[in-house]
Design a binder for these strands. Structure first.
Length: 726
RNA sequence: GCCGAGGUGGCGAAAUUGGCAGACGCACUAGACUUAGGAUCUAGCGUCGAAAGACGUGCGAGUUCGAGUCUCGCCCUCGGCACCA
């Protein structure tokens, strides 16, 4: 044993022993309780960053802990290796995506091993290998059979910069999640997975996992799914041609306020408007065009959108009161939510109130507080703000005097009984559009035949393999459309000539079920053997970034429910506990004049810190004044620490110890060079201590040695020290 | 605007049920050992005070023998959603 601690020597020795003995290889063992420790799989960019180290160090610590506590631990690793960067590299440098990806994986795997993480490397999965994506396709076909995969013409979110379609989640806020540029709309035929079929379950089952998940993730999922209970009500369009009754269906959560409706307001894209465009007066059509243009402009500049609208001249009958109401087009009504039409009740909805005031529409109060007097109720048209609270109905025909709660139920029933509405639940969640006009993804196993139409591939023909490469130039079109060897095929049904679907699947498909594959990575018949998976799953602890709080985690939960309905698993929720780690951020310096980043190295930047350790003045090597900021740590930003370098100088264990110790895992971690020393010194201290006493430590200590009743003061001290240490 | 989380030393932070606030680490101060080691060891390190002691967990009230923790009101920070009908 060396007197001094040489991190590299010690780490290499043990890493070799672990690898040779396969101690981290997990096998089913019914004698032991299992523990499935999972960290989110990385995209193989080619280099490991400190965020990875933090994530995998946390998982590894827990895996070790559980092993030492007698659990049979499954701790696997894999690669989210489909996706756009490989294609970008192919375009820029003419490399083959598969080769580029595999090389990145190789180099990252080396870095991971150098960190000494305790994975069962035999179970590695690679999203881009046919062996894996065969089952993406398998699942797709199953979902097609179940009616959960379907195709429709749709307006898609389109990112001009990335030349790609985006899911609603990926285009949240009108901004591309990858490049941050504005998202536009485009019409395309797209494949969808019916996530909305599970919307209720996705909300209700959260009760099962709530205790084990961070509150903010649960909340964000609830918000994202956005369940809202209310009712549909059909307003009959007045004066419509006799050939057929035209109805406008609105969705409302406050049917109890329907006697206070002063208008029906529809979205600019509403079918009623589209169909009636020719018969609308020219000035109305002109105004609608203006509203559309203003909205687009405001959205582009991220400006607040002022309420705007126009009376179309169309009239609709309130089926409850029989009143004839004007139909307005309003820019605040969205086609994507509910039915794209609302009843406007200005006395009890803030948005409708604002709209009514702006356009001088009547405001009529129909709900008052339960303790309101006659005179309160009479002070009717002087309402200066909407009151959204529940109360007691007035001026509402037969429901006058009923409470809002009772009226909501009774009025929905009344509408259903009379055929002009029904109780309804709507969701913000949309079906998941998975078609991508991209090369580097799993091909969608569908064939188009002139004779038979849309035909699913047969299970026996899976995997439908990607060609080695494709011509990558040309915007907005799948590269596979230019590979006849790929798309020319025969119909699985009639065997006549047919054309293969050339779109590939969203990469979020790969990460929706990969953690099940780890349990049975070599299965060629099924995604995994249900009995084997039943031993290991669900995942006991999942760790990853909270940037996946909605997309990945909703998709994976959805997929699990589908697998349950397929009989592959018996539970509803895949992740018992979830831990979301905070970002690793670094101190960055900017050139005061140009605003450009300056490479952050102690040699090139001198920073003066005040008493609180905050940087006050920083100067570059050439004397330039610098501005200080904190940003996500990365190599390209120049504020990053390379884990390889760190492991080389300080040792992998010291690096890991530091990232775990510096801050609670869910907090942001500001990287600070001096902190790592604590980790180094701690290990050195342990080493010295063991070195000093290693002969004595070789003698086993028994419980009797540390009993307090032993009069020896040394024993008492030892016991005290033991407990202090614990 | 709505919703969620939080506010404790110079810094990162502990404090599981209401029971010694600030564990542990970093930084800092003094001393010891020596010397070139990324040192190490010992002691100190919330504020005021020479000390005794007093005060102290964003602010203000309250409950309690006792409050960082519970209740009410307010302020601030971070995050999410944002015309969701």
């Amino acid at each position: 044993m060396d007197e001094k601690y040489f991190a590299k020597k010690v780490e290499q020795k043990w890493q070799r022993i672990w690898a040779d003995s396969g101690v981290f290889n997990a096998e089913i063992n019914d004698a032991k309780p299992k523990f499935y420790q999972l960290e989110m799989l990385p995209y193989p960019s080619g280099n490991l960053h400190m965020g990875h180290v933090r994530n995998y160090s946390a998982g590894d610590a827990l895996a070790w802990y559980k092993r030492l506590r007698g659990f049979n631990v499954l701790h696997p690793f894999g690669w989210d290796s489909f996706g756009q960067p490989a294609e970008d590299a192919a375009i820029k440098r003419g490399v083959i995506p598969r080769q580029w990806t595999e090389e990145n994986i190789d180099s990252m795997r080396g870095q991971m091993e150098r960190m000494g993480f305790s994975y069962d490397w035999r179970r590695q999965m690679y999203a881009h290998r046919p062996k894996y994506y065969k089952f993406d396709q398998w699942f797709f076909l199953k979902m097609y059979e179940m009616g959960l995969a379907y195709k429709r013409m749709t307006q898609v979110n389109w990112c001009e910069t990335d030349q790609a379609t985006l899911s609603n989640e990926q285009a949240s806020g009108g901004i591309c999640w990858r490049c941050g540029n504005p998202v536009t709309k485009k019409k395309l035929e797209q494949w969808f997975l019916k996530t909305t079929a599970y919307a209720d379950q996705l909300i209700d089952d959260m009760a099962v996992i709530e205790g084990g998940w961070p509150q903010n993730v649960v909340k964000r999922q609830r918000d994202w799914i956005g369940r809202s209970r209310g009712a549909y009500v059909d307003f009959t369009v007045a004066g419509a041609d006799v050939s057929g009754e035209i109805k406008v269906r609105v969705f409302t959560t406050r049917i109890d306020t329907i006697y206070g409706a002063n208008a029906v307001v529809v979205a600019v894209e509403h079918p009623l408007i589209r169909e009636k465009l020719e018969i609308l007066p020219a000035n109305v059509v002109g105004r609608i065009d203006e509203i559309i243009k203003d909205n687009l402009k405001a959205r582009e500049h991220d400006d607040e959108i002022e309420k705007d609208g126009v009376d179309t001249g169309i009239r609709a009958i309130n089926p409850f009161s029989g009143e004839e109401l004007p139909v307005w087009v309003g820019n605040y009504v969205m086609m994507e939510y509910g039915t794209g039409a609302v009843m406007s009740v200005p006395a009890h909805d803030e948005r409708d109130h604002e709209f009514a005031i702006k356009f001088g529409l009547p405001v009529k109060r129909v709900v008052v507080p339960p303790d309101a007097t006659e005179s309160d109720a009479a002070a009717d048209d002087t309402i200066s703000a909407a009151t959204t609270e529940y109360g007691v109905l007035i001026d509402s025909g037969q429901w006058s005097g009923r409470s809002s709660e009772d009226a909501k139920n009774e009025m929905a029933e009344h509408a259903a009984a009379n055929g002009f509405g029904e109780a309804a639940t709507t969701f913000r969640l949309r079906d998941w559009g998975i078609s991508r006009q991209r090369f580097w993804g799993a091909p969608i196993p569908i064939v188009y035949c002139d004779a038979c139409g849309i035909v699913p591939e047969s299970f026996d023909d899976l995997p439908i393999e990607l060609p080695e490469t494709a011509p990558f130039s040309g915007p907005g079109q799948s590269p596979l459309e230019r590979v006849p060897e790929f798309f020319k095929t025969n119909c699985p049904k009639c065997h006549g000539p047919a054309r293969r679907e050339t779109d590939t699947m969203d990469t979020f498909v790969d990460s929706s079920w990969y953690f099940f594959r780890y349990t049975d990575p070599d299965n060629e018949v099924l995604p995994f053997d249900p009995a084997t998976a039943a031993y290991w799953t669900p995942v006991d602890q999942y760790i990853g970034g909270d940037d996946h709080a909605v997309m990945h985690l909703i998709y994976a939960r959805f997929w699990t429910k589908v697998m349950r309905d397929l009989g592959l698993v018996t539970f509803d929720e895949p992740f018992r506990r979830l831990l979301t780690q905070g970002m690793v951020v670094g101190e960055t310096f900017f050139d005061d004049a140009s605003g450009k980043r300056v490479y952050h190295q102690p040699a090139s930047v001198t920073a003066a810190r005040d008493a609180k350790g905050k940087i006050t003045v920083a100067t570059a090597a050439d004397g330039k004044a610098l501005k200080y900021g904190i940003e996500r740590m990365s190599k390209s930003k120049g504020n990053g620490v390379d884990p390889d370098e760190l492991a080389e100088i300080d040792g992998a264990d010291a690096s890991r110890l530091f990232v775990m110790f510096a801050a609670p895992i869910e907090n942001e971690l500001v990287w600070n060079e001096t902190g790592i020393e604590g980790g180094v010194r701690f290990l050195q201290r342990v080493w010295r201590l063991v070195y000093k006493w290693h002969e004595l430590l070789a003698i086993p200590l028994t419980a009797a040695d540390v009993k307090p009743e032993i009069p020896s003061t040394n024993a008492r001290k030892l016991r005290r020290k033991t407990h202090e240490t614990i």
